[in-house]
């Protein structure tokens, strides 16, 4: 798949933002006043920036309100509704907590649930797609959730918990790579199944056109395969393992946490870029790819 920068930025930042908001709703860290205000500002900034970036991906962002209507079947619609509901509920909670020093526990908890549900909905936009076997697996929501909770805990100064969750996420990521690398073939997708013709080995004799098209640019696009293994290690190293080790074994104060956050962010951008760049769409079979 084409790794569109708007979607990479959206999923990384909103994942981190909603992760932080989930902790703030549970009164972690237990702060108040302006400190709490800054925490909420960071959470809303990340989640908001992510949602804003996602609208750059749309052909007609002026019709985005319609995306709140199809929650019965569409994970994208559910994500939109859940994210707005989360931001409204936690906005009210933050308003009362910051300016009136009143923390409504149930309201915050509801906001936390909505934040986690938003990340789950985001992950299911990809996880539901049978056309991309690498994504169509329980590891996709599991990874999105653990990365979001781990990153959120890191921002919420829950160092040890963050370290443990990021380590778990690294293990999950390794399993997702291991299992995902063979899933396309394991599901039985081939040019023979794509065309229904099973009388012998097949290959593309002539493409429908000499140029490119939307499908090829968007879904059959292959990039970064040469360095994929290195990028996996770089992404997991900087995004998950290095932060986890520092969080678990070093005494992390307010100063050291900044480079850890930057390292985590950089690694996450690499991992999310790979998530899209490495995804093979079954339509590629018709164009002589993935055979």
């Amino acid at each position: 798949m084409h790794p569109a920068p708007s979607i990479i930025v959206f999923t990384v930042l909103s994942g981190l933002g909603f992760g932080l908001l989930a902790f703030l709703g549970l009164n972690m860290p237990d702060v108040s006043g302006w400190v709490l205000f800054v925490f909420f500002a960071v959470g809303y900034g990340l989640a908001g920036a992510g949602l804003l970036a996602s609208t750059f991906h749309l052909g007609h962002p002026e019709r985005a309100m319609l995306a709140f209507t199809q929650w019965k079947t569409s994970w994208l619609s559910r994500e939109g509704i859940l994210s707005v509901a989360c931001l409204v509920v936690l906005g009210l909670y933050a308003l009362l907590a910051v300016f009136f020093d009143t923390k409504l526990g149930w309201l915050g908890a509801l906001g936390s649930v909505l934040a986690v549900a938003t990340v789950f909905a985001t992950s299911m936009i990809y996880g539901q797609l049978k056309t991309v076997p690498r994504w169509n697996h329980w590891t996709t929501p599991a990874l999105f959730l653990s990365l979001s909770i781990g990153g959120g805990a890191l921002l919420a100064s829950k160092s040890e918990f963050a370290g443990l969750v990021l380590l778990f996420a690294a293990a999950l990521q390794i399993y997702a790579y291991y299992d995902g690398d063979t899933r396309f073939k394991a599901r039985g997708h081939s040019l023979n199944s794509a065309t229904g013709l099973d009388t012998g080995p097949m290959r593309l004799f002539e493409a429908p056109h000499t140029g490119s098209n939307y499908l090829m640019k968007e879904m059959i696009h292959q990039i970064g395969r040469k360095h994929a293994q290195k990028l996996r290690l770089i992404g997991m190293g900087f995004g998950l393992i290095l932060p986890a080790i520092l969080l678990l074994f070093a005494h992390v104060g307010h100063v050291l946490v900044v480079p850890i956050i930057l390292s985590h962010l950089a690694g996450m951008f690499v991992l999310r870029w790979l998530f899209f760049a490495e995804a093979e769409h079954v339509v590629g079979l018709y164009y002589g790819k993935h055979g």
């Binding site: 013709l197 097949m202 290959r203 593309l204 056109h209």
Partner: peptide
Amino acid sequence: RVHSYEIT
């Protein structure tokens, strides 16, 4: 669109 394939 029309693709063309070779079967052997």
